[in-house]
């Protein structure tokens, strides 16, 4: 009985607190994305904006480890019985990717553009090991500093 109550408490905590934290994180992501829209990034290896003069370029990275809440983990477990889209993991991956790319952008203030962006996903603390459904995201690219050519461009 006590175990059952504990389970219900964890479910409710996960549902309410997890949902609140996630929506707060998403609103922070949206706000920062709007602020950083001036720094374009591309996964093409060619420059997105023609540069008049390149001062320097450097490797920039951003990474994050995000875990799923208890409620969503149980729901995902149930979902795997019948198959179909696992929505709870979709939002987890979405916010982790966007956060990693935002951190990469934030790590190079003053840059004109980031080219050749790659995103790497991994999970060493997987559900089979210790029951933590978490995902590690690493985004990296080449930041270019310098003067942008005066065109109407993009």
């Amino acid at each position: 009985m006590i175990a059952f109550l504990g389970f219900i408490t964890l479910l409710l905590l996960g549902f309410f607190v997890g949902r609140y934290l996630e929506s707060r994180h998403f609103s922070s992501i949206r706000q920062r994305e709007a602020e950083l829209v001036v720094l374009p990034n591309t996964n093409s290896r060619y420059q997105l904006i023609p540069m008049q003069q390149i001062e320097r370029s450097e490797l920039v990275t951003g990474s994050v480890v995000i875990s799923i809440d208890y409620f969503k983990r149980i729901v995902a477990g149930l979902r795997s019985l019948i198959g179909g889209p696992v929505q709870s993991y979709e939002t987890l991956l979405d916010r982790a990717r966007r956060e990693a790319i935002l951190r990469m952008k934030e790590s190079c203030p003053g840059a004109c553009q980031i080219i050749n962006v790659r995103v790497e996903t991994s999970s060493i603390y997987n559900a089979a090991g210790n029951g933590i459904g978490s995902v590690e995201l690493l985004a990296y690219g080449t930041a270019i500093y310098g003067q942008v050519q005066a065109t109407n461009g993009l």
């Binding site: 607190v17 995000i66 208890y70």
Partner: peptide, 15 residues
């Protein structure tokens, strides 16, 4: 991380 596992969110130690 085990605690964070209930609420979800970033695992700063792992980051």
């Amino acid at each position: 991380a085990g605690l964070k596992n209930v609420f979800g969110g970033e695992l700063r130690g792992y980051t």
